[in-house]
């Protein structure tokens, strides 16, 4: 979706600079430790009121990025400024306070709700932690919230397993909303849902965004969903951002060969069998990142130069960044 331009300000809600998250693997007496560069040097901003879509295939680091932004996994290095304040420097208590402002919705509506707690207990606990409303009003506050996300107030007394997948995802949304956040990270939030339910949840997310002036970071592997909901789209490949541009610009004129291939790979019901840019092979292992441009092993345009020099994410035209030596 494109929100009307006037809703968007140029003010940055989140500024990410050189964010890195490496995992150490293995290691022991006789084994060398291996390093997985899950997120490798990301720099981008999230504007107030926008929906920033992040798209990429499995292993590209998009989910790790979401967790690193929230400090659910401590970034290896890099700065994350939220309203001018570096989150990475906060101590436990300050961080818990900040978590009121930034929320996350996970993919799996089965794993992300505690099976032993009623929905009401779960939400009330969060409301109590942040003292959102006085104790007496907590129940009605939570029930209103449940109604707002399209559930019945009786859902308060139910356990997660009493709901269908779509309803659980609504509960997750209510949980995120409970603390009145400013930014919500949706990590594959609709990927586990059936098409018709997915459409319902997408519409709900947009309705809530308008109503509560939210900002979304919408992480997904599904390009058409990201295109539908985002104002700007970032494409990730092997821990790097390879392209970042306005939604219409990236769709009309994808600059990076990977983005082009990604778009052409989607089976589209509105077109007859279109010409595909077939990518060779699989995504290389993040344990063993190719030198130079990370995409050169699969890129149809790769040259000798690509193997040596890593391209930077640069403006190819206004508001359109791409990391490719040959992007025009």
């Amino acid at each position: 979706m494109a929100t009307p331009q006037m809703e968007q300000s140029t003010e940055n809600l989140l500024e990410i600079k050189g964010l890195k998250k490496y995992f150490e693997l293995g290691g022991g007496l006789f084994k060398q430790k291996q390093q997985v560069k899950a997120v490798d040097d990301l720099t981008f901003n999230v504007k107030k009121g926008e929906t920033l879509g992040i798209v990429g295939e499995s292993g590209c680091g998009k989910s790790t990025m979401g967790r690193a932004l929230l400090q659910l996994q401590k970034p290896t290095s890099g700065e994350v400024y939220y309203e001018g304040q570096d989150i990475a420097q906060l101590n436990g208590k300050q961080l818990r306070k900040l978590r009121k402002d930034i929320q996350i919705i996970f993919q799996d509506p089965f794993a992300s709700l505690n099976p032993r707690m009623t929905v009401g207990a779960m939400l009330t606990e969060i409301v109590a932690t942040h003292e959102i409303v006085p104790k007496k009003e907590r129940q009605s506050y939570v029930q209103n919230l449940l109604e707002e996300v399209g559930l019945k107030a009786e859902a308060y007394w139910k356990y997660p397993h009493e709901f269908s997948g779509g309803q659980r995802q609504r509960v997750s949304i209510a949980r995120a909303l409970a603390v009145q956040p400013k930014l919500i990270i949706c990590d594959e939030a609709v990927s586990a849902l059936d098409v018709s339910v997915q459409a319902q949840v997408l519409n709900l997310l947009q309705k809530l965004k308008r109503k509560h002036q939210l900002t979304y970071i919408f992480i997904s592997h599904d390009l058409s969903v990201v295109k539908h909901i985002s104002d700007r789209v970032g494409v990730m490949y092997l821990g790097k951002m390879v392209e970042l541009a306005d939604e219409d610009s990236i769709y009309e004129n994808p600059a990076h060969p990977y983005t082009q291939a990604l778009f052409s790979a989607i089976p589209d019901i509105t077109e007859d069998h279109k010409e595909r840019i077939q990518l060779k092979g699989d995504v290389p292992s993040p344990l063993n990142v190719p030198t130079g441009c990370r995409f050169h092993t699969r890129c149809p345009l790769a040259t000798e130069y690509c193997k040596q020099a890593e391209p930077a994410l640069e403006e190819v035209k206004e508001h359109h960044l791409a990391a490719c030596h040959y992007a025009e």
Partner: peptide
């Protein structure tokens, strides 16, 4: 079902949905 899939062409403000489950 066909209508509720987000399309790559054009812009849709809101997706048509089939209600319920």
């Amino acid at each position: 079902l066909i209508a509720s899939i987000p399309k790559l062409q054009g812009k849709t403000e809101e997706l048509p949905v089939i209600k319920g489950a």
